[in-house]
Amino acid sequence: MTTFPIAVPPPGDAPGIATRHPDEHRPWPHKPRTWPRALVIAAVICALTAWSAIAIQFDPATLIRNAHNASRTLVQLFQPDYTFIPDTAGALLETVQMAVIGTAVSVALALPISFLASRVTNPSTVVLGVARFIMNVIRSIPDLLYAAVFVTVIGTGAISGVFALVLFDLGIMVKLISEALDGLDRGGQEAALASGATWLKADRIAMLPEVAPSYISQTIYVFELNIRASTVIGLVGAGGLGMLIDKVRTFYQYHYLSTIILEVLVIILALELLSSASRKRLLI
């Protein structure tokens, strides 16, 4: 602790001070005692970390022991083989196809469902509750799990990937669009209802145009997610680049692997730039 140059009067100097609380002559307030709580929190965190380290058999020695192996792999990884790019074209195309089809189908399905899942556009509490519950369940299952199940049920290939992507996107899309609907101004809809329109007509005339910009922007966003996801779901056999990654990994062809990863990186970054630019244009 640094000592502060502010004069602290000695206890005997001023009359009356000695009778007060010994700390009261300090010119600054007493620091609250937080260390017991901090100690408990730190202990809990340390205990959890220790438990998790034991559970996963954390062992830095393995890393060092395998360092030789790893260094060879790393050397291969940092020498991507660009001649492999033509061979990836088919898988890359399939990834993009899956992403496009998945996006198209899911956004088409998501629009009516999100109108059902928003309180603003759906007057029926029962339908609203059912729609929301189903969408919550669909959303809580990860995409790779969908893919794994569909690969076993339907078979290997792009079709399982498309199914997985559609379900995965549907969850996200409906959530985002129905929340956008919830936040909308209901004036137009009320006017339409007052002039005798049915709910369907009122939603179509007054709410659809209002939610359209955010619908398009979420579509772009979901497409971006799909490109990421469709490179990964192939690892369990659902087509696209992931299947190729799985193949070169089983043959330990790391220079091919890094080529694929570079491709994925380039595509994802390009798509991110494109989508952020187009979304900015939409919002202004």
Partner: peptide, 18 residues
């Protein structure tokens, strides 16, 4: 993607929770 990172790390530690 994390899954791809995991695929990359396989050679170093093997396929474990670690």
């Amino acid at each position: 993607p994390e899954v791809v990172i995991a695929v990359l790390m396989l050679s170093v530690t093997g396929l474990t929770a670690y």
